[in-house]
Amino acid sequence: MSVAVLIEHHGGQISRPSFEALTLARTLGTPVAVWLGEEPPADAVAQLGEYGAAEVRVAAIGDDARLPAKAATAVAAASADSSVLLVISTFVNKEIVTRVAMSTGAGVVVDAAGAELVDGRVETTQTVFAATWDVRTRIETDRAIVGIRPNTTQAAPAPTAGDATVVGVDVPLPETRERLASVEAVPEEDGVPLAEAPVVVSGGRGTGGDYTLIREFADLLGGAVGASRDATDEGWISHEHMVGQTGTTVTPALYVACGISGAVHHRGGMQASGTIVAINLDPDAPIFEISDFGVVGSLFDVIPQAIERIKQSRES
């Protein structure tokens, strides 16, 4: 069975969640990579093969990939012979798959943490209600679309590499009413993107707007910097860093909440993380109710000491 995987890439580099999705796809069938935008570089094609892609279907549609209706037409054409389409569960991909589902009749589950075949149907697992419930959903249609969250599958190369045969997808794109007036790239931060990061260190009101220690701790742990809504509303840090239900939902192996009380909107965006650690001055902060380890204290005291101790332990 062919399983199409929509590959995320920036500047020719494949994002880490795409390798996770290919790894998951191999448990369902034979992965076929779908690539939108500019032509993939040769090393990217080779990597897709290492993760088991039998083919790489390329729809070289450039910036048209930014318009959901055009992207959906290209994805539908590239995955027409696949029973399952896997995408990374981003806001943009949810728009694309909604349109693919409407044109193909496929059933869709987004924000999934896993997918498997049960009696010939795709079943997914996901958390709902601010990550307080686990739900298993069966897709009842012959074609299934699953949006998978980053960090939910351990990426691993295929035991036997796929051929990664590049196949052009030549599809007439529909005229759309929507027109891109401008695209202004968001300056890329050093390090890992928030949604994909295996470790996230977040700062909230308790930082008072000073993210120096948060960044230092994140760098030490190889993670990304997050923030609460309070902090982005104050303008202390840009909106791209906001963890929460209307910002970025994260599921890293380790989440460190510093000076964040844990309002329900924030918890909904991080509660499914592997291990949660919190530092807060207020012993009654709700964040402690969902933390594996909490320190009641000042982040300005606790973080520097933790950094020193971790450095020592790495040296020894």
Binding site: G107, V135, R136, S291, V302, Q305
Partner: peptide
């Protein structure tokens, strides 16, 4: 096109620990 086949409330995290910083919280 989809059916919920199973749903269960996630259990609270087991063995939660909260310590108060008295000088060695970071450690």
């Amino acid at each position: 096109r989809t059916t919920v086949v199973d749903a269960s409330e996630r259990p609270p995290r087991a063995n939660r620990q909260v310590v108060t910083d008295t000088g060695d919280g970071g450690t």
